[in-house]
Nucleic acid binder design. Structure first.
Length: 283
DNA sequence: GAACAGGTGAAGT
DNA sequence: ACTTCACCTGTT
């Protein structure tokens, strides 16, 4: 897998990415700030900046400079990992094989831990539309504004900013009983009691234990934060969709045997199960 | 209007 | 250890 990049007309063009599919990556439920635009590009905000991503033929285009690509987007989009090779090593029966085939091109984004924690606290018992609305509202109210393509966008607010809020100030977000969870998480991170960067460097199980201490963080949210926000590819979040997929997959699928990249298998299962449901098939 | 939606935590068996 | 229920809100 070789990747060739060059900068042209405000975009970075990357050739040779045979296993990166923007729609699958942005629609597989891991992120909430990427949206498909009328022109077919995906517009997103991450790391206090914004970009468009698109793929035409075999060329992936990411707006911005080569410098920005090399220092941020390349890692964020996890373009250096050979997903094709990983997929070849996943084994767990016919259902998982079909799911992996279906999800080929999906990448696990290397998102910010704090943003991921907040996003998945908000996600509980919620649908994607509302999750996205609440996250955007949170950013618009408390995040740092910046210009992108002449329009104002908002960075995800840092833990210090949120820690300074009262529950009343969060009320307009309409996130209901999740508001106190956000505040507690913000205070833990801003106060230094919870160091997400340090957790990312340590062992998955240890990081999980720490996350589970937060109110509103159970197994599902903790595993999503580990996988999407702390780079722990062995984390395996189980939600309603994955549960359904696992029922279909039967005993051939042994989660504990999936090992270091169990999380990738989880993403394939999630995307497959939900994709089938959306296209009207049985679960 | 009731039921439900990508969960959690407390309380009851 | 396993089951049931309330939790805030928006949508069907």
């Amino acid at each position: 897998m070789s990747m060739k990049c060059r900068e042209r007309d405000g975009w970075v063009e990357v050739a040779g990415l045979t296993d990166f599919d923007p729609p699958k990556t942005f629609e597989c439920g891991q992120c909430f700030r990427w949206n498909c635009q009328p022109d077919g590009s995906w517009l997103g905000v991450a790391g206090g900046r914004a970009a468009r991503v698109r793929k035409d033929g075999g060329i992936v285009r990411i707006s911005g400079t080569l410098e920005e690509f090399q220092t941020y987007w390349r890692e964020y989009l996890d373009l250096g990992r050979d997903y094709g090779a990983l997929r070849g090593r996943i084994s767990g029966g016919d259902y998982l094989a079909a799911a992996a085939e279906y999800g080929a091109g999906l990448h696990i984004l290397r998102q910010d831990g704090w943003e991921t924690l907040c996003s998945f606290l908000i996600s509980q018992c919620n649908n994607i539309t509302r999750i996205k609305r609440i996250v955007e509202s949170l950013c618009a109210r408390f995040g740092k504004p910046f210009l992108f393509e002449g329009e104002v966008r908002y960075a995800f607010p840092g833990p210090e900013r949120l820690a300074a809020c009262t529950e009343g100030e969060l009320a307009p977000l309409r996130c209901g009983y999740r508001a106190p969870y956000l505040l507690a998480a913000a205070r833990a991170v801003a106060g230094g009691g919870l160091d997400l960067d340090r957790l990312a460097e340590g062992e998955t199980g240890r990081a999980r234990e720490e996350l589970l201490k937060l109110p509103g963080v159970g197994n599902k949210v903790a595993d999503c934060v580990l996988l999407f926000g702390l780079g722990k590819t062995d984390a395996f979040p189980v939600d309603v969709w994955v549960r359904r997929a696992m029922n279909c997959a039967g005993e051939e699928l042994n989660v504990s045997a999936l090992g270091e990249y169990a999380g990738l298998a989880q993403q394939y299962l999630f995307y497959y199960a939900r994709g089938i449901a959306r296209s009207g098939g049985a679960e």
